[in-house]
Design a protein around this nucleic acid. Structure first.
Lengths: 189, 189
DNA sequence: GCCTGCGGTTAACGAACGTTAACCTCTGTC
DNA sequence: GACAGAGGTTAACGTTCGTTAACCGCAGGC
């Protein structure tokens, strides 16, 4: 069954899909309500506002990406292993939650200031998690350059919603291989 | 001076910047008018509708990316050289027109059916331009996989609006190197 | 067996949107 | 020097939006 998540989670899930398809401003609260089987203003029994739905969604993603990323880095025994673990994690997340990935880099600008700054700060920390490992591997790398490399790797991996023709396992292997290649790590196969 | 482009081009340019910042649905015709120094409905002296502005913008980008890409491939003497030329071209375009890059992959879904299909078709052709060169280089590559690789490379290169800390020439070199690395080509330096 | 509160409903609101209408002011043409 | 058209203006339109208000049914605790 599984469609008996509590309403709140169900709304978040469905709203993510709609936001990914049409953008935050392209989706009305009526659309969201209809998609979960309630109608319009009932949404306000669960959230303070439409902006709140987006905020909760984006803060949750950013936190999840960061904390799981930190854990995987902590368990790695070399910068190369850490980077491989980060790539695997990001690929896994992007393949499992393509809608969230799309919303995260398309609609964060629609957040109210407070939530926006929280999300930005978490994202910066996540970028730096990658950048630090890159600089441990190559101490000549400047911080700016390492951050730009992390962003580029995210862009590569986050492209997955744009090309869903491949089976998931093939896509996972392809994206991980390309990401490692782009960062100058030798791919396994 | 140069700010005496004809109004039409000026509107397209300014609208691209606004759409990139806030999304198509997050920008009103009043916003666009204000940004070019006229007010609201005056825009209709130059375009049939707000959708028309977006359509013209996106069709122009897609055509430009494709035709210049085709020319660069035609002048290359090997698949490797063709891919390097495509990477250089895409990087150059993304650095010169970050707003257009953002709008192109964020707001194409807001297009009316006709324009949307035209843009999609041009984009498919551009993807295949890349995919064909990848398959000439490695005949074992399936079409689906080659297309996914092209999309991933676009994602990497198109990440440039998200990280503008580096000087442009350093960014050009970084993105080109990473893109080639992701595609399995040996980078020059 | 009442009552409280959760999760719904429909109706209504003011604001903002895209667009149209009506009008004005130049500028170049015959 | 009348006139047409290009490119502006403000006022006004209908629609849609996010949100609030008022109301209702039902489950669980006392």
């Amino acid at each position: 069954m599984e469609r008996t998540l509590d309403r709140r989670s169900q709304i978040l899930e469905v709203a993510a899909r709609l936001f990914a398809e049409r953008g935050f401003h392209g989706v009305s609260v009526g659309d969201i309500g209809r998609a979960v089987g309630i109608s319009g203003p009932a949404l306000y029994k669960h959230f303070d506002s439409k902006d709140d739905v987006l905020a909760e969604m984006l803060v949750a993603i950013s936190e999840r990406l960061l904390t799981e990323g930190q854990e995987r880095v902590a368990q790695a025994h070399s910068p190369d292993a850490a980077l491989a673990a980060l790539v695997d994690w990001h690929v896994e997340f992007a393949l499992a939650q393509p809608s969230l990935i799309v919303v995260q880099d398309r609609d964060w600008q629609s957040l109210a200031v407070e939530a926006r700054e929280r999300v930005r700060s978490l994202q910066r920390e996540y970028v730096d998690l990658w950048a630090d490992q890159l600089r441990r591997r190559d101490p000549d790398l400047t911080t700016d350059r390492a951050q730009a490399m992390a962003h580029a790797a995210f862009g590569l991996i986050n492209s997955t919603p744009h090309s869903s023709r491949l089976p998931q396992s093939a896509m996972r292997e392809l994206l991980a291989g390309m990401a490692l290649g782009s960062l100058g790590l030798k791919s396994l196969s």
